[in-house]
């Protein structure tokens, strides 16, 4: 049997006595786009953050292309840390709050990690950065400071920063939730291009339109558990559980 591209195996995470994640299993094949939905506080962010070990889980394993990103917990050795950083370099992460680096201009935001983490020469890194900034529509903002960019531009910059690392997997945590409605489209269109290029993605989103058109699978979480998952049509049109029904009703009410 062909191993899965990304395997999330029996992840558990507690914060105090809150079960942020409970027995979470998830298999992702290459090129798949997984949309994660669920009420606020149900553990969506925590799930993404365990994938790149930003939040180490209490137990469970994450395996990418047959290699263990992390398993068990406790102190990691120096070598494990190194390999973790190498994994992270190939896993792009995009945050709700952008987290662009305000002391670096747009170009340098995209260049810095290439040089520091991947040891690429500056010339080459800049060439690549310009190409990618071009692709996300920030061609004329190359010298701009992040503080002077709009939310949508900041988020596209953050995406460009990840793309420059040649990611094989992208984790996006509500990439459009902090944006004014009229700016959501420009970010979604960048994401659409990524989908078309065959990027493997885990994306937490409440944009059901986007999820149903571009998602291969929708995962519904509640209280730290995966309740239902399946193709968008099944999940959105004929929810099996009461919880999902309730959630979808609420969501469509608020978006009316």
């Amino acid at each position: 049997m062909k191993p899965n591209f990304l395997e999330i195996i029996d992840i558990n995470k507690k914060f105090g006595n809150i079960n942020a994640l409970k027995n979470v299993f998830l298999n992702v094949s290459k090129g798949e786009v997984i949309c994660i939905i669920g009420p606020s506080g149900c553990g969506k962010s925590t799930l993404l953050r365990t994938v790149n070990w930003l939040t180490p889980p209490d137990s469970g394993k994450v395996i990418l292309k047959g290699e263990i990103i992390g398993s068990d917990t406790g102190k990691m050795t120096f070598e494990q840390n190194n390999s973790l950083n190498a994994f992270r370099a190939r896993i792009g992460m995009v945050f709700q709050q952008f987290n662009v680096w305000p002391h670096l201009n747009a170009l340098e935001n995209v260049v810095r990690a290439q040089i520091v983490v991947r040891k690429i020469m500056r010339d080459e890194a800049e060439k690549k950065a310009i190409k990618i900034l071009n692709e996300v529509g920030l061609k004329d903002k190359i010298d701009e400071w992040p503080d002077n960019l709009s939310g949508g531009q900041k988020q596209r910059l953050a995406i460009a920063r990840s793309l420059a690392m040649d990611p094989i997997l992208m984790l996006l945590d509500e990439p459009t939730s902090a944006l004014d409605p009229e700016l959501i489209g420009e970010v979604l269109s960048v994401l659409r291009n990524l989908v078309n290029e065959g990027m493997t993605m885990l994306i937490v989103t409440h944009e059901l339109g986007f999820a149903s058109r571009f998602g291969d699978k929708i995962v519904f979480m509640d209280a730290g558990e995966i309740i239902e998952s399946g193709p968008p049509n099944t999940i959105l049109k004929s929810p099996k559980t009461e919880r999902l029904k309730l959630f979808l009703e609420k969501l469509s009410l608020t978006s009316l």
Binding site: L54, N81, N85, A86, R88, R90, M93, N99, W101, M165
Partner: peptide, 26 residues
């Protein structure tokens, strides 16, 4: 803000690289 260190770590920088490139300059 905490997100600054997180984004640096998430992109593969070590603790010291994050300090030197992202946190300390700010």
């Amino acid at each position: 803000p905490k997100g600054q260190l997180e984004s640096a770590r998430a992109i593969g920088m070590t603790d010291w690289q994050s300090m030197k490139n992202i946190i300390l300059p700010q």
